[in-house]
């Protein structure tokens, strides 16, 4: 997996609550057997007109935000389905970090699996960052996962919390399947004990 250590990039404001996974990637783009190539469809229902041309009023279509790598958004971001196509689409577009007051649980977990850092901050802090982000291309902020700090365009610093295990995996680009496979012996022991206490769970 890609590492996430420190990111200095443009932050785009998308101040809407309850942005659901259908909005991030509509269902008719889920008929793929690949993880890649979904960036062009990210937010398609609010990003494009019916004829496929771009909507000028959508933030990621604005010249200042076309190369944004950070999204600053509203509460309960990513609610709805478990589709990992949502973070895949965002990643393919170029988004590497999402800052919101809260996230839906499944989406939040899916981000870490794709080297996207979701950061939870209080609404008041988000409001300040949104003000910065509204200044367009000037809104370059730095997200330092090592230090767990965000530095705004004016040099103001905000700290954030992140789960230590997930932080460790992101900083080192670790694939957690490899980490778990190192524990095969204890998984086998657990399963052997389970076969004795709850034999009806095993068909073979």
């Amino acid at each position: 997996m890609d590492k996430f250590t420190c990111l200095r990039a443009i932050a785009a404001p998308l101040p809407m609550n309850n942005i659901d996974t259908d909005m991030i990637i509509p269902q008719h783009h889920l008929t793929t057997i690949k993880r890649t190539g979904l960036g062009i469809h990210a937010f398609s229902s609010i990003r494009y007109h019916d004829d496929g041309t771009e909507r000028e009023d959508f933030v990621l279509n604005k010249p200042a935000c076309r190369s944004a790598e950070i999204l600053i958004t509203g509460a309960n971001f990513g609610c709805g389905s478990s589709r990992e196509h949502a973070p895949w689409a965002l990643k393919d577009f170029g988004i590497k970090c999402i800052i919101a007051p809260s996230f839906a649980d499944i989406f939040y977990g899916n981000c870490f699996k794709n080297a996207i850092l979701p950061i939870i901050l209080p609404q008041k802090t988000i409001d300040l960052l949104l003000d910065d982000a509204d200044s367009g291309a000037n809104a370059i902020i730095t997200v330092d996962l090592e230090q767990q700090q965000i530095t705004g365009p004016d040099g103001g610093v905000v700290s954030f919390e992140v789960d230590p295990y997930r932080r460790h995996c992101l900083l080192n680009g670790l694939d957690d399947i490899d980490l778990t496979l190192e524990k095969q012996d204890i998984i086998r022991d657990y399963e052997a004990a389970r076969r004795l206490t709850q034999p009806w769970l095993f068909k073979d």
Binding site: R35, S81, R83, E84, P87, I177, T180
Partner: peptide, 21 residues
């Protein structure tokens, strides 16, 4: 019982476990 993303689907396929809080 809970829904998971595709990376977790792969994790369960490979290990029969998930890393959770």
């Amino acid at each position: 019982a809970f829904g998971i993303g595709t990376s977790e689907v792969e994790h369960v396929m490979a290990t029969r476990t998930l890393v959770l809080k």
